[in-house]
Amino acid sequence: MTHTLGRPDFELIAGWIEPGHRVLDLGCGDGTLLKHLIDLRGVQGVGVEIDDANVLAAIKNGINVIQGNLERGLDEFADQAFDHVVLSRTLQTVRHTEGILREMLRVGREAVVSFPNFAYWKNLRSVIDGRMPVSEDLPYQWYDSPNVRFFTLLDFEDLCNKMGLIIRERSVLDEEGNPVTSEVNFLGSLAVYRLTQTR
């Protein structure tokens, strides 16, 4: 969950966020994305992070960080307190998938969600070869992976549809971070969505 500078989904997310916006980053790690957004776009940022070392690192980075467990909801945040609520490469680690998506759109006008696509062709090839996939976007062995939900772009879009969430924008990237525009569920390694819901 630790962010590294120059991550391609960060660049995308940063491009969607306007100066001065209020941004909540769920699973903010050491606060790299928020620091980037604060420094470059002058946003007001808050992060949520569960891990002690990351909370400390975020405080060192001068980021407002609230230690907490996403599985328990976002009670300390008021309705519509943020313009954007970011969940970067974390949805697959959360058990209460619907719960966190609802919470994101309760506290924010827009949810920005990125996750690894399990139907990416290299992942499929791994499984056909008899091995669980390990890649740039799925960098764990099966026995130490924090991931608890395994899904594809099509699966995620079905859930959005079922929940009445509106997909405002979608960007799909390959393992090198290059945009993928066709056969996205097969050629895309990482997906980034902007979601809203009607009120």
């Binding site: 909370v55 975020a58 405080i59 980021i63 407002n64 609230i66 230690q67």
Partner: peptide, 8 residues
């Protein structure tokens, strides 16, 4: 909108 960090 205050600057706040919280450690548990």
């Amino acid at each position: 909108g205050r600057n706040v960090s919280y450690a548990e």
